[in-house]
Nucleic acid binder design. Structure first.
Length: 255
DNA sequence: ATGGTCGGCAACCGA
């Protein structure tokens, strides 16, 4: 079973890239973030012949998540569900007996800002979400854009970038707390190399100079992570269209 | 060079 995650930075702009990518990679499950499309505008027709079922939750202009699957999707839920008004940042479903949690974690803007406090609170809420709904020995895949680089080797300039909202002790500690509950970073089970990036800022020619970040993750609970046979970062899909600023991350599980 | 580039969507905000 192949499970992938991809921050598309606008689903509608990236339609051609996503459909081509389905054809070339045939993942069983794809988690998508930053769809930037409201539910009534979701391009349902464009995926009608794709061979994938899909569920989604979006909002105007910002955020938005979706799950695509070759196998039937059940037990779908949205959001952290501890506050009545929530952004479209979490979608959960069960596929082939595996719980898939797809998150687009807040970026945080600036460490002095209210948005950064929101990011830290979001992590605390997510930790509670896992504790409330699941057990660490359940079969769970938690994937998405986490807006965190976990280690120095996950950013292009560890000294210069230290203290950034995506690379500081506060967010690293917050993620570690959730991982201690029972998640394994499956990419790092298979690859210890530095400079394995999934994101490059559009600004300043970052991609050209490989000034990247590893911000996208596939986490699995321990028993499921033991069944992960490989995990790799795909080449940035380009086709005829403009690429996203992220690239897909793919994991294969023997299930 | 105190900027740079995208996407949504119509003046900026967010990344």
């Amino acid at each position: 079973m192949i499970i992938a995650t991809f921050n598309v930075n606008s689903l509608r702009t990236r339609l051609g890239i996503i459909l081509d990518w389905f054809g070339a990679n045939q993942p069983d499950v794809l988690c998508v973030q930053e769809t930037k499309v409201q539910d009534h505008d979701f391009p349902v027709e464009a995926f009608a012949q794709s061979g994938y079922e899909f569920v989604f939750r979006g909002q105007k202009k910002y955020n938005g998540v979706a799950i695509f699957s070759k196998s039937p999707i059940s037990d779908v839920s949205f959001g952290l569900a501890d506050e009545p008004k929530d952004e479209a940042r979490l979608i959960k479903a069960v596929i082939n007996g595996i719980t898939i949690v797809n998150t687009y974690i807040p970026q945080g803007y600036d460490r002095e800002s209210e948005k950064f406090q929101y990011k830290l609170r979001w992590f605390a809420r997510l930790a509670e979400y896992f504790k409330r709904h699941f057990k660490p020995n359940d079969s769970i895949v938690w994937a998405g854009d986490f807006n965190i680089a976990r280690e120095p080797k996950d950013v292009y300039d560890p000294e210069g970038l230290w203290g950034h909202v995506c690379y500081c002790s506060e967010v690293q500690n917050a993620l570690n707390k959730i991982m201690e509950w029972g998640f394994v970073d499956v990419f790092r089970r298979h690859c210890n190399q530095a400079a394995q990036y999934t994101f490059w800022d559009y600004r300043g020619g970052a991609f050209r100079q490989n000034m990247g970040w590893r911000l996208d993750y596939i986490m699995a609970t321990k028993t499921l992570a033991a069944k992960c046979t490989n995990c790799w970062i795909d080449k940035k899909p380009r086709s005829a269209d403009k690429p996203s600023d992220h690239t897909p991350l793919i994991a294969q599980f023997k299930v």
